[in-house]
Design a protein around this nucleic acid. Structure first.
Lengths: 224, 224, 224, 224
DNA sequence: AATGAATGAGACTTCATTCAT
DNA sequence: CATGAATGAAGTCTCATTCAT
């Protein structure tokens, strides 16, 4: 016997809720699931956790998705889309230099992380879960392939404009991947936007030879 | 079933036996568990899987460990110890320069990965599981702290010998962590020792400003 | 979608309309349900399956029936009525002999099965479900009682006309029930109208002693 | 806090029970499952019901079988074997006539039914479930095929000894199947061994033409 | 020391039913 | 009238853990 109508916390009764929008609910589930998957992984996340965060019962999830796996895939798809859209946006200007683009990407990554920390956390989480749960691998590979091809275009742009040595193409690719992976993980682990930003800046500086170049002599970009 | 490391036929040497049967079993469980935890995570690994790989039954695990959690912690402890010992070994020589030390660490990381790929895989896996299973966090923090303090000593050594700008200390720390995390993950994912080695070289070069420094002109270390 | 029995273009006849829209829906649900119950049983049939076959949603079922159980009972009632009506029809002629009646019943059973195989399938299915789901038992017993009393009248007619030995009344009843049950099941299982017809003929022949009494020479009971 | 040691009804504690024999338990599960499957069908039987009857918990079932389906298949296999063994036994004597064999089979069927009514009930139940649950079909077909081939050998024996007209082989097969199916179902439904026995006798008499051929005067096939 | 039978909690999933729209 | 969102109970199955042997 639950009091009804007054307590806003848990008064839901049987049947259709008073104001319910299918799309809205679906989105709520995805968002709730992303948080939980990011934190606890695929196996570690229970339907109850997802449902509770979304304000429904476990059964209702199955009204929108056929299985927990499908929820995960939906989260993946959306997260993937969100990130790549953002990357595409900030590199859309054709007059940008390679350097500017790299900086823009790192900047927007950092910014997205501040806006919604579950994005980066989910991606890193997914990279682990994909290796643990075969059914997730295909989705992950798709995401990975898109990321790689995005960076390929970026590097090729750098080569075209003379910023990169064509002989170093594969080296540049590897380095970029290592550093983006590293930065993403760093951001997830330290869990502190400011630290992430500083690490980003430091990494960019290092890439410019301003950090580890030996001999005590520091390089300056466009040094006068 | 199979004795490893020492010939079983050879008569026991004096002193404490190298490994009592119990110790041997325990180690087998830990090794089996590391592989499985690395692949499937803490929640995703079952006691049966661990037991089967170790050639025993689930009940026997409880003779050596009080719970699955304790198995995990034991794995962590040992893996942590193994890695840090190795790092300490290759940087023990007091005449090494900062550059040489960094190179030695990356080299030995790569080497360990070739010897037993479950080491890096477990560490990356653990960094996720720690955030997923609160009971694991303490152990993970301990490992992390040791790593950080190891790198601090390294950076301070670089500052002392003039290879690093003291003002850049925290930046350098951040960059090194980003780099090592990125490389570890890269190695686990690409799963190919040669690619890992190339990526290591490329990343080091990038951090020296030899890859992405703008203006088309490449810097050389010790340029004449 | 498809009007049945009467042309929809024909103007309404006087009196009660043949089928209001509601009635039509109700009948559609019953028909859909009979197919599904026949195939999957009471427990194995879901409301969604019934609804989908009937071209509506699950909620709509509850406008016509109070529960899944009531749908089942309605199906039962209708099926029962259909079969008994048909039996009554073909045995209505008072000049038929007992032998002719038995033949007519077997023939019309076979024919109904060809027209709508879900009828026999439902009846056999129901005989199982009744024993599985107590709430269905009452309905089933009703149907069974009607069948028994129909056969009783039939046998009594046979006795009256001298075709059956009065001392064998209960034996004849039992044999008839065994054979009708057997034939119905056989028809459902072999799922082939021609085979069913042949089995019917063979069974009738057997009952006449034409099959298992060898050598053309008939055995006599208490042959003296 | 359950009292232990004294109440024999439900005192089971965690861990291995005091006296436990794997084979025994397995057999108990199968027997319990047969009863329940016979009564409630595959879908209608819950693991809890099986477990409770067998005196264990649901989880323990999975120590012996991988799934509910496998329990069902094991039950089927055993039941099938039991029945066919019994049929083979009572028809093993090479000097028996066809008539004697048929009588022996019907007699032993009736007898088995008295010994354990779940046997016939399970078989009839299975014939329905096989059509409802595709995974059960293969097993059922196997059983059916064995039954058919058993009856084929029987009929061929009847032909060889001149008791059956070779031209009527398929008719005789059909009639025998109809008869056995009918008797089995009748026995399950009336649930009364004596009634079953009487029905058996009556049906056999009917097949000999002793029931429905009126006037004591037998019809002749191709009567001159 | 080790086995393997067993428990019990909890996971995912299905489904009859209810109800606002 | 009908839809479809939602609940809640129940079902199958898994698994860490316990314990007699």
């Amino acid at each position: 016997m639950v009091a009804r109508g007054t307590q806003p916390s848990r008064p839901r009764r049987l049947g259709r809720p008073i104001a319910s929008d299918g799309d809205e609910r679906r989105r709520r589930i995805i968002e709730s699931a992303r948080r939980q998957f990011a934190r606890s992984g695929f196996a570690g996340t229970t339907n109850r956790e997802i449902a509770e965060r979304a304000g429904i019962t476990t059964g209702a999830i199955y009204h929108y998705f056929r299985s927990k796996l499908e929820v995960y895939l939906a989260v993946f798809e959306e997260t993937d889309r969100l990130i790549l859209e953002r990357y595409a946006q900030v590199t859309a200007d054709p007059t940008m230099s390679f350097d500017q683009m790299v900086a823009a990407i790192l900047e927007v990554s950092s910014q997205m992380n501040r806006e919604d920390e579950s994005l980066a956390a989910f991606i890193t989480s997914a990279s682990v879960d994909a290796h643990r749960t075969p059914d997730l691998m295909a989705s992950y590979r798709g995401h990975d392939r898109q990321m790689v091809s995005f960076f390929e275009r970026l590097v090729d742009r750098g080569i075209a404009e003379g910023s990169l040595d064509p002989a170093m193409r594969s080296d540049a690719m590897a380095a970029i991947r290592v550093l983006t992976i590293g930065l993403t993980w760093y951001s997830v682990r330290v869990h502190d936007p400011e630290a992430h930003r500083k690490a980003t800046v430091a990494t960019v500086a290092a890439l410019r030879g301003e950090l580890f170049a030996p001999g005590g002599q520091r390089r300056r970009r466009k040094a006068g």
